[in-house]
Design a protein around this nucleic acid. Sequence first.
DNA 1: TACAGTGTACTAGTAAAATATAACACTAGG
DNA 2: CCTAGTGTTATATTTTACTAGTACACTGTA
Lengths: 124, 124
Amino acid sequence: MKFDDKVPIYYQIKNHLYHEMMTGQLAPGEKLPAVRQLAVDLTVNVNTVQRALGEMITEGIITSQRGKGNFVTTETPRITQLKEHLIMEQLERAYEQLHALNLSDEEIIASLKQYIAQRGQQDD
Amino acid sequence: MKFDDKVPIYYQIKNHLYHEMMTGQLAPGEKLPAVRQLAVDLTVNVNTVQRALGEMITEGIITSQRGKGNFVTTETPRITQLKEHLIMEQLERAYEQLHALNLSDEEIIASLKQYIAQRGQQDD
DNA sequence: TACAGTGTACTAGTAAAATATAACACTAGG
DNA sequence: CCTAGTGTTATATTTTACTAGTACACTGTA
């Protein structure tokens, strides 16, 4: 996996797993790949995976069962809530950054629309 | 100044200065505060400031004159170009993140509009 | 009981970022 | 020539993220 060297890898792993949960690739209650397997898949060290999982466990978004594995929480509201939180986080950061670049609210929306339109022409 | 400990400080300083240039707080040709003064203002080390400035000099967005100071480039097209680049960077990152959270193009635009509307009700 | 698969914990080492401190080089003004 | 203000460079130290390697603890199954 490719990582942005401006952000800690463990943090990017968290987001990677979040995304898999949001897109349903990891359903509620489902077992995550073993930590050693994740380490291989992501080409990182077990400890780095563990650090990411450790925070997610603290957040209550996954649960750990020694000898069995790590599992996505079955409390779906928790997942929904996390998704809302992640979306708001992205919107807030993007808005503030663009606002700081001296763009008005209208310009921000317009530039996003234009970006998406432009992007649609090419690929994806 | 407050820094996000997920990103290198020198990188955040670059963005900080970029923003000041975009909003006109730092006009083309204008002299930047002395490196030692910047270090005090931002409560960081001179070398950290220097690292940020060094990259900006390499990028040609500021010029350095030993004994005099650092100055914003007078080549305004360069600044305009940088602004476009920074905007695109933000849009791309936000779009990709939201897209990864399973939001469609329409949902992305709608959620941004909603966020801005909601924000307008409160303050700023 | 044995064993394979799993999570957890610990120690040691490397690399990058940031700091503290100091020295050097140039400019402008007395 | 001297000095204050400026950019530039260098060394040593600390902190954090990451890696490597190992060992331990628990679960399920044969």
